[in-house]
Design a protein around this nucleic acid. Sequence first.
DNA 1: TTCAAAATGTGTTTTAAATCACAGTTTAAA
DNA 2: TTTAAACTGTGATTTAAAACACATTTTGAA
Lengths: 229, 229
Amino acid sequence: MDLSEKSNCTFCHFKSQAVETLDTTEITLLEKNCAESVFKKNAIIFQQGSLTSHIAYIRSGLVKIHKRGPSRDQILKIVKPLRFIGIPTILNGRRYQYSATALVPTNLCFIDTDIFKNLILQNGSFGNEIINELCQDELRFFDHAINRLQKQIHGRVAEALLYLSTEIFANNSFLMPLSGKDLGDFVHASRETITRTLSRFKKEGLIDKQGRQITILDYKTLLHISRTG
Amino acid sequence: MDLSEKSNCTFCHFKSQAVETLDTTEITLLEKNCAESVFKKNAIIFQQGSLTSHIAYIRSGLVKIHKRGPSRDQILKIVKPLRFIGIPTILNGRRYQYSATALVPTNLCFIDTDIFKNLILQNGSFGNEIINELCQDELRFFDHAINRLQKQIHGRVAEALLYLSTEIFANNSFLMPLSGKDLGDFVHASRETITRTLSRFKKEGLIDKQGRQITILDYKTLLHISRTG
DNA sequence: TTCAAAATGTGTTTTAAATCACAGTTTAAA
DNA sequence: TTTAAACTGTGATTTAAAACACATTTTGAA
């Protein structure tokens, strides 16, 4: 990983709400302990089990957070820009508990864990924003867990498509960043089942699919399928 | 809910690490905006969909956090004393996104959400402790999700028994706080499957079971089952 | 102390989706 | 530009656990 390029945080155009709370001294501190880096599609950002070093901030791109389970890899969440990844690194544990991989070319800033922790301790507003993000993540994760556990594939896939369209891309047409296997690892289904389900959605006119380009055609029905499972 | 009794936080013997960081002024503020209350077994602490009012702190007892899914109730986590529940209430949302129910007689302190938020903003150390708790929860939840999704019932039940024994009760013998249905809602299995699995574990000498009293007899094998699924 | 309502136990049947097997297609590296 | 590797598509078979159906036991409220 190439951390050679130093960042200029003060004039960065991709500040998160948390970083916006920092004063001049604090942002200078951040700047001195922060390095920018570019990751190609499928490049591993950090890997479960390796020694922790930094918290990463997504300036642009898309990242999957995943963890090896007894039978397969499980994609736990997909994180989009202006969010930190690897915050639990601030806990005493010395190894990453999960992996992070770039789904598309991704621009990251690596921040020293101790500096990040100091910002939390010094600036209540910074900590408050981090808490807000963690709470949002928790609520979303509760819903994802229920979706994955209680719905049948049609519901799970519909919900994943709507999630990508609405939350991640904010566009009813998008280039699917996940392969069939990845989508399976995300919604807990086999690759074959994903193929069959997407084909069916296409045949029924709920989506259009040209290669990886997906367009939501019938939002309402998809939402209904995603709700009822 | 009876919030009549005012608390004496300063001399409370059940302070969390977060509350330990507060200074005299802050703890007085907390004390003035905090009310103690006792909940019977199975009493609802707050319910998904109802208007948010307070964050609760568990002084003693045991609480399940659960949410209604399309096919059944899902127990998302079990929370033990010296932890807050309902922290996401600090987000702008005006309704609880999940329910909390006492599993055993439980002693709670209700704290005004705005006061809680002010403590985070004013005192970085307080926020830091809350962040630590949220991070621990996230890591545990990742593991729980993988367990529930990827393992077969034997593994899921073994893992739940070890979780209760190790993390919740810190004792190899404990009074099961969950009914068969509840345990099913926790590990995502039907009531019948839970019965069969527990009977089998007993027959094979892995646990002893006298009514609700469970004793872990063969920790090693259970751990192996829980790991391999 | 009684008695209905929960909770638990056990055999049989059903089912959703995984797995298997293999063909065709795209992608990226040499 | 070629060529292997990764990805996608589709039918047939298998399987883990849910659902069903009922008997029995426990619990807690009148």
